[in-house]
Structure formats: C-alpha cells, structure tokens
Amino acid sequence: MRKWHRWLSVFFGIFIFFIATTGVLSQWAVLWPVPEPTAAELAAQTPPPGFECPEGWRCSPPRTETGPRSLVGFFHHLHSGEEFGPAGTAISVLSGLALMFFALSGVWIYVRMWLDRRRRDAKDRWFWK
C-alpha cells in the first residue's frame, strides 16, 4: 500500500495542488467584498428596452460583477477541468478519486504502523517520529 501511495502521490500531487488552488481562488473571489452602489448609480440604472416591472415589485437590472468576483466562473472552469476539455475533466475526476485513495490509504498505513508499534510494546503514542 505504501508503494502505491508514494508513486501515485508523485503524479497526482501536481493536479491535486492545482485543484486545491483554483478552489481556494474561486471561494476567495466569491467572498471578496462588493461595494454598495451609490444613490446616483442606482438612479442611473435603467431597465432594458421593453421591460416593464410588475406592479408592486422593485426592479433593477442585473449587476455586472467587477474585480475578483468577475473571475468566479473562470476559476470554476479551471477547478473542474472544463477549461481544458474532456481530458481536463477526466484528470479532475481522477485527481478527486486519487485524493480519496490518499486519504484512505494514509489512514490504513497509520493504523498498521500503530498496531505494529502496539504489538512490539513500543511507547504508546498517537504520533511518533
């Protein structure tokens, strides 16, 4: 199990790091503060031609995102691999499966090492050097 864990991590580590980075950037862009529009900007907003606001509703045109928030879609496409076509999506899915494998095999390796230490009556610690 250790051999597979080690060799797969060499290959998939790069992709998992890329996926983690784009995921963080995507969330960072969503959490980026958006300034509230001023009264003059709100007054200048006009609905598209032919649009009538239903009675009793306060209508305004959709906001156009600026700054980092405008990159959310791009980061999502990078994160999911869609930006690189079917091969990118496949690599993204395989990287997700590899991440699940690393989590499970890491726990498996740790438990086996812990049981081995326990069998040898070594100093009982959860973490060791």
Rank of each mutant, 00 (worst) to 15 (best):
residue 1 M to F: 14
residue 2 R to H: 14
residue 3 K to I: 15
residue 3 K to A: 15
residue 3 K to L: 14
residue 4 W to M: 14
residue 5 H to G: 02
residue 5 H to K: 04
residue 6 R to H: 15
residue 6 R to V: 15
residue 7 W to K: 11
residue 9 S to R: 15
residue 9 S to P: 09
residue 11 F to L: 15
residue 12 F to M: 12
residue 12 F to G: 05
residue 12 F to Y: 01
residue 13 G to D: 01
residue 14 I to T: 15
residue 16 I to C: 03
residue 16 I to Y: 00
residue 17 F to S: 11
residue 23 G to S: 04
residue 23 G to A: 07
residue 24 V to Y: 04
residue 27 Q to P: 05
residue 27 Q to H: 11
residue 29 A to R: 01
residue 29 A to L: 05
residue 30 V to A: 04
residue 32 W to P: 02
residue 33 P to G: 01
residue 35 P to D: 00
residue 35 P to C: 03
residue 36 E to V: 14
residue 37 P to V: 09
residue 40 A to Y: 11
residue 40 A to G: 08
residue 40 A to W: 09
residue 40 A to Q: 14
residue 42 L to G: 09
residue 43 A to M: 05
residue 43 A to Y: 02
residue 44 A to M: 01
residue 44 A to R: 09
residue 45 Q to C: 10
residue 46 T to W: 00
residue 47 P to N: 08
residue 47 P to S: 06
residue 49 P to Y: 02
residue 49 P to W: 00
residue 50 G to M: 04
residue 51 F to N: 04
residue 53 C to E: 04
residue 54 P to K: 00
residue 54 P to Q: 02
residue 54 P to E: 03
residue 54 P to M: 01
residue 54 P to T: 02
residue 56 G to M: 03
residue 57 W to P: 05
residue 57 W to G: 06
residue 59 C to I: 02
residue 61 P to L: 06
residue 61 P to Q: 06
residue 61 P to A: 13
residue 62 P to N: 03
residue 64 T to M: 12
residue 67 G to D: 08
residue 68 P to M: 13
residue 69 R to P: 02
residue 69 R to A: 05
residue 70 S to Y: 12
residue 70 S to F: 12
residue 70 S to L: 13
residue 71 L to P: 03
residue 71 L to N: 06
residue 73 G to V: 06
residue 74 F to W: 14
residue 77 H to S: 11
residue 77 H to T: 10
residue 78 L to Q: 01
residue 79 H to L: 01
residue 79 H to F: 00
residue 80 S to F: 02
residue 81 G to K: 02
residue 82 E to N: 12
residue 83 E to D: 09
residue 83 E to S: 12
residue 84 F to R: 07
residue 86 P to F: 14
residue 86 P to Y: 13
residue 87 A to N: 08
residue 87 A to P: 05
residue 87 A to D: 09
residue 87 A to C: 09
residue 91 I to R: 02
residue 93 V to Y: 08
residue 94 L to W: 00
residue 95 S to L: 03
residue 96 G to F: 00
residue 99 L to M: 15
residue 100 M to D: 12
residue 104 L to W: 10
residue 104 L to Y: 08
residue 105 S to G: 05
residue 106 G to V: 02
residue 108 W to D: 12
residue 110 Y to V: 13
residue 112 R to I: 14
residue 114 W to L: 14
residue 114 W to A: 13
residue 115 L to I: 05
residue 116 D to K: 11
residue 116 D to C: 07
residue 117 R to C: 07
residue 117 R to F: 02
residue 118 R to T: 11
residue 119 R to Q: 08
residue 120 R to P: 01
residue 121 D to G: 08
residue 121 D to M: 10
residue 121 D to I: 05
residue 122 A to D: 15
residue 123 K to V: 12
residue 124 D to N: 14
residue 124 D to V: 10
residue 126 W to F: 13
residue 127 F to A: 13
